[in-house]
């Protein structure tokens, strides 16, 4: 089975002991969409991300990325194909400077061989200069310019989130999976982050995000997928989801009615 969709999965299953953590029959994501994945805690959202990015191997099922069966690919190969993710607990390279973090994301894929790394050609030097100009622009956008030469571990939690998105901005993956981009972030910063996510989408990066801030989800998403107990229980436009009886019962609660 191939598909011209960006990403599709079929009968994807993963269980831990007796618990069926993920059991998704079929799900497709098309291009140019911001899709949100919501659901109660323990619904299997992060596990689903882990399966897609191969931090865990599925018990069965297939994953297709741009029509290619990538079920057996390791994380780094998927990253090279243009599918990358963030983590619930924000991760940056703590022992590198902000600049290095950005440079790393901008160039790591292009050359890894030792010989090429030892002998820097002229084109590589030019590439790095252009890269730094690009980095400066993005850091300006993220309000991180003053931290350019600081170690990433010196950043606050919110700044790390911004740097994480900055890494995505410079990397320009085809598909970016965001795991709770707004967790533990103040309302003002949350607004900024939402703007950046929108920007990413405009730049042609497809986004699937797990998020609990339901107002943000409804505001930004073009499509909302709801998971509960490992299964997809609803899938559609934000408005339809907001009024879906199953979703209200399983996740949203009566307050949002």
């Amino acid at each position: 089975m191939t598909s011209n969709k960006l990403l599709s999965v079929s009968s994807l299953k993963k269980s831990f002991g007796g618990l069926q953590a993920v059991n998704v029959d079929s799900l497709e994501f098309s291009e140019n969409e911001i899709t949100s994945l919501i659901g109660p805690n323990g619904a299997g959202k992060t596990t689903f991300f882990d399966l897609l990015t191969k931090f865990q191997n599925p018990d069965q099922g297939n994953i297709f990325f741009e029509g290619e069966n990538v079920t057996s690919f390791q994380s780094y190969k998927l990253a090279r194909l243009g599918m990358t993710r963030t983590f619930q607990l924000t991760r940056v390279f703590e022992k590198m400077s902000v600049l290095e973090n950005m440079q790393f994301s901008g160039s790591s894929v292009k050359n890894e061989s030792i010989s090429r790394s030892l002998i820097k050609g002229k084109s590589l030097n030019n590439f790095e200069k252009e890269l730094e100009i690009e980095v400066d622009k993005i850091l300006e956008l993220l309000n991180l310019s003053h931290m350019k030469y600081s170690y990433a571990r010196e950043l606050s939690g919110g700044q790390k989130k911004l740097l994480e998105l900055g890494r995505a901005l410079i990397r320009k993956p085809k598909l970016l999976l965001l795991d709770e981009p707004l967790a533990g972030v103040n309302p003002k910063l949350a607004e900024e982050i939402l703007d950046i996510i929108k920007n990413l989408s405009i730049e042609g990066i497809n986004i699937i995000m797990v998020e609990h801030n339901i107002n943000a989800v409804m505001k930004i998403s073009e499509r909302v997928v709801v998971m509960a107990e490992g299964k997809i229980i609803a899938d559609g436009e934000p408005e339809a989801i907001r009024n879906n009886e199953n979703v209200i019962e399983a996740y949203l609660g009566k307050v949002n009615e």
């Binding site: 931090f55 994380s75 780094y76 983590f87 390279f93 022992k95 590198m96 790393f104 890494r167």
Partner: peptide, 16 residues
């Protein structure tokens, strides 16, 4: 150094 820092982040950055 990247793998030393965070091997998960390194692998989603395309490092084997």
């Amino acid at each position: 150094r990247a793998v030393r820092d965070s091997s998960e982040l390194a692998s989603v950055s395309g490092i084997n």
